[in-house]
């Protein structure tokens, strides 16, 4: 079957995709060719994806990142806050001595040394070569040990039946899930949905980029401004950085 021309059937879907591109007004896709990986090339550790969140720009009451995440990944609550999944949440921080309040999003911190990956008995919890921490739901047995181990409370267990999933974001009852850094978008060369929404509807507080590339905007900003990471003392080397926290 080496000579088999399976691409014949692709005429239809390729045409549809092209139409989608044209739909975006006045836009073509050449620009990202340099950045987007070919579909058949595996990810490598040359890249390490990360986020930088400017806490001063993030405001109370804005939940653009949270709603975009839910919309993008098809996360629907059942009105049960204790068991509903939350990949990203807005945290309110108050210094009891000064009364100063800060608001910012917290999600999976995509650690370089993730405790969730260490403890997972089957290897379902894993770190991709480019630093994105994921759950392989095909081999997740739902033991929740990763949730016990995560220092950031970043993971949710799917407590109920799920239907109407997004085709690119599979999720189902009985497995653990967390922020995927919108891996399907990143693989296509786009930024995570939260970052995009923060820029479009929020306050432009979030920046996505390659931490391994010294010339990337994120690396430049981390090199220029004072930043910190949550519980950096644990030595897990998170991939999410906070400015003005």
């Amino acid at each position: 079957m080496s000579e088999f021309d399976w691409k014949r059937r692709h005429f239809m879907s390729a045409a549809a995709a092209a139409a989608g591109v044209v739909l975006a007004p006045g836009v073509t896709l050449y620009g990202i060719a340099a950045k987007a990986r070919e579909a058949d090339v595996p990810v490598t550790s040359e890249t390490r994806w990360g986020l930088l969140i400017d806490v001063n720009r993030c405001s109370d009451g804005c939940d653009a990142c949270v709603s975009a995440c839910n919309e993008e990944n098809g996360i629907e609550g059942h009105g049960r806050p204790a068991t509903d999944a939350q990949w990203i949440r807005k945290v309110q921080l108050r210094d009891p001595r000064t009364g100063i309040e800060k608001h910012f999003p917290v999600m999976c911190q995509h650690c370089a040394e993730p405790p969730c990956v260490d403890v997972c008995p089957t290897g379902a919890s894993f770190k991709r070569a480019d630093g994105i921490v994921l759950v392989d739901k095909h081999i997740c047995i739902g033991c929740r040990y990763c949730m016990m181990a995560c220092p950031y409370k970043a993971r949710s267990f799917i407590h109920e039946n799920v239907s109407e999933q997004r085709p690119y974001a599979p999720r189902g009852k009985g497995t653990v899930e967390s922020c995927t850094m919108c891996v399907h978008r990143v693989d296509a060369g786009a930024v995570p949905a939260c970052v995009e929404a923060c820029g479009e509807r929020g306050n432009g507080a979030m920046l996505f980029g390659d931490l391994n590339d010294p010339d990337s905007e994120i690396s430049q900003r981390i090199a220029t401004y004072a930043t910190r990471r949550i519980r950096a003392d644990l030595g897990v080397d998170p991939g999410v950085w906070y400015q003005n926290l």
């Binding site: 139409a19 989608g20 739909l23 836009v27 896709l29 990202i32 690119y168 060369g189 949905a193």
Partner: peptide
Amino acid sequence: DQAGLARSLAVAAGME
């Protein structure tokens, strides 16, 4: 998702 992602790609590319 096709149209949405295409637009996001354009944003990422700095075209928009």
